[in-house]
């Protein structure tokens, strides 16, 4: 007799735990053949607010970690995703109906993208900051700092890479994230959350909501404790209202324009730095340079 498989329940990822939606709501996810893949949590406004609380409470530890440490933790994420490669490929094949080679290429690209960002953490200050050659007796420097809590609407262009490609730059900069997964791909997104949960990423640094972006994003866009928005996954016609809501608290908004050539992004292309810079603040610090005589004589 065939063994009965143990199906996984896909839940939210909030503050390091995997709770159901407080609303008790779920939605069904089917594969391309129409079979039920999972009942995913349909996150509510309350879940979104809980996610913001969790992201805020995770911020001090993550932003305060050394860049080297953040890099190591993010590299660990790549290691863990690599070890879950077969699972994720299977989920992508089932949910999208693509060939295994294509799914493998996406997972490989996602792992490589994580490694790319793991290597960014301790270079941001060198590339986007430095000593300022001010015209006076001061030591002045500028350095990037995290913006804070960033709400991300992941694109549904494909199940994994857009999610990873949006979340990793937010984390590399020292921010924490509330991520609303692509509605079509909760199984891949929650599996990625499991990767994060087993990668030494502190609780609250990434909080993943599954469900309807159109329902949840307005609450995040108007939330007073959210500092930034990544609207990549939001259709152009729905962005205006979100950007308007963001203005109430002067949120930083990353809202990339449509690709000039149209079509899907080239997953093999280097991601550039726009996503990193979108959620970094530049802090400039000035210190007086004391009048100490180098010649041992009188001060000059």
């Amino acid at each position: 007799m065939a063994r009965l498989a143990v199906a996984k329940t896909y839940k939210l990822y909030l503050g390091g735990a995997f709770p159901r939606s407080e609303s008790g709501r779920t939605y069904q996810v089917h594969d391309t053949k129409g079979s039920l893949m999972a009942n995913a949590a349909l996150a509510s406004r309350k879940d979104a607010r809980n996610a913001v609380v969790a992201a805020r409470s995770g911020l001090a530890k993550w932003a305060g970690a050394t860049p080297y440490n953040r890099g190591q933790v993010l590299y660990r994420v790549a290691e863990m995703l690599e070890s879950r490669r077969a699972d994720v490929v299977e989920l992508i094949v089932r949910s999208r109906g693509v060939k295994a080679a294509e799914a493998r290429a996406e997972v490989d690209a996602a792992v490589d993208r994580i490694v790319h960002y793991a290597g960014w953490t301790d270079k941001l200050s060198a590339v986007f900051g430095g000593a300022n050659a001010v015209s006076g007796p001061y030591f002045s420097y500028s350095a990037p700092e995290p913006t804070g809590v960033v709400a991300v609407a992941a694109s549904s262009a494909s199940p994994l890479l857009p999610l990873v490609g949006a979340v990793l730059p937010v984390l590399a900069g020292g921010n924490t994230a509330v991520v609303v997964a692509s509605q079509a791909d909760p199984t891949v997104a929650v599996t990625f959350a499991e990767v994060l949960a087993t990668s030494d990423v502190p609780a609250g640094v990434v909080n993943l909501l599954t469900g309807d972006q159109a329902e949840i994003m307005p609450w995040l866009a108007s939330h007073g404790d959210v500092n930034g928005l990544d609207l990549t996954g939001v259709p152009a016609d729905q962005r205006v209202a979100l950007e308007r809501a963001a203005a109430d608290t002067v949120k930083r908004v990353y809202s990339p324009r449509a690709r000039s050539g149209g079509g899907e992004p080239d997953v093999t292309a280097a991601p550039g730095t726009a996503r990193l810079r979108a959620f970094l603040e530049t802090k400039t610090v000035w210190h007086p340079v004391g009048a100490v005589s180098l010649a041992g004589g009188s001060a000059y």
């Binding site: 001010v134 015209s135 006076g136 002067v250 530049t282 802090k283 400039t284 210190h287």
Partner: peptide
Amino acid sequence: KAGVVWDNTFNKFDPTASFGGYGESGF
């Protein structure tokens, strides 16, 4: 949480030194 911090000085500005705010002080 401030875009410019002056230690033992105040109101110093220079074109080489970025100036601007956090939060509702702008971006």
